[in-house]
């Protein structure tokens, strides 16, 4: 990269700010989560739990993971869908007619790589094929891992509730077919799909001055794929 470094904090301001807000909101989830959990415990005639017990419980684990999985699903689908599908006029989209993985020349791979291209973009073969899909593959892998984690923590939390209600625990496979698991999954997926679709189409007609997520304020509505 040719831009000059301006120090660790300014170079990474976006990632570090979101990382810090992530930690603060995770603490907020733990504090409000234990209060909500204890309100239910008391209503059920059970002992309240401490904050430490709550954050080491599968109830907390599944609540965190069910949201993580839907975010990674969203990015995974968006990264792959935008290769093949366009939204005319959107800053989030490629231009109509450019659908598909594009040529090696356009993508600067193999012999079309620049001097400062990543090594795996130049080398060819399976490494270039994998590297050329690495962002989507990582998001897809993180979706599968977080979804699996939400199912495992959800299973334990569900069985905790079952025992509290003097009902039989279910097997892991039984939980994968339970309404609780699918309700948690679908209620997160639906909101992600709506948000992504909204962003793609709202960005056609609306602007945010200075944001790379938006077209330049004066860009015509019909222009696709221009950011500024």
């Amino acid at each position: 990269m040719s831009e000059k470094s301006r120090g660790f904090l300014r170079d990474n301001a976006l990632s570090l700010t979101f990382g810090a807000v992530f930690l603060a909101t995770l603490v907020g989830q733990a504090l409000s989560g234990v209060a909500d959990f204890n309100a239910q415990q008391i209503a059920d005639g059970l002992e309240p739990v401490s904050l430490g017990e709550y954050v080491t419980s599968s109830s907390f684990g599944v609540d965190v993971m069910e949201n993580w999985q839907s975010e990674y699903l969203q990015f995974f689908l968006y990264i792959f869908a935008t290769v093949w599908l366009v939204q005319r006029g959107s800053s989030e989209s490629k231009k109509p007619g450019e659908e598909g993985p594009e040529s090696d020349k356009e993508q600067k791979v193999g012999r079309h790589a620049d001097e400062d291209s990543p090594a795996w973009a130049r080398i060819g073969g399976w490494r270039t094929a994998v590297y050329g899909r690495s962002l989507g593959l990582l998001m897809g892998a993180l979706f599968l891992l977080t979804w699996a984690a939400s199912s495992i923590a959800g299973w334990a939390a569900y069985n905790g509730d079952q025992l509290g209600n003097r009902e039989d625990p279910v097997s892991y496979l039984g939980y994968l077919g339970a309404a609780d698991f699918w309700n948690r999954s679908f209620q997160n997926w639906q909101s992600e799909m709506l948000a992504v679709g909204s962003m793609a189409v709202f960005a056609v007609y609306l602007r945010q001055r200075g944001s790379p997520e938006s077209k330049p304020v004066g860009a015509p509505h019909a222009v696709t794929g221009q950011t500024g």
Binding site: S5, D11, G19, V62, M65, W68, A156
Partner: peptide, 30 residues
């Protein structure tokens, strides 16, 4: 770019640790 790479790995490690932690809580049946 070295300090950017550190943030890349920090994110990846935090995510993997979070996933492993949630799986461990579930498997422990807590």
């Amino acid at each position: 770019m070295r300090n950017v790479r550190a943030v890349f790995w920090l994110y990846l490690v935090v995510i993997i640790v979070g996933i492993a932690y949630a799986i461990a809580l579930g498997l422990a049946g807590r």
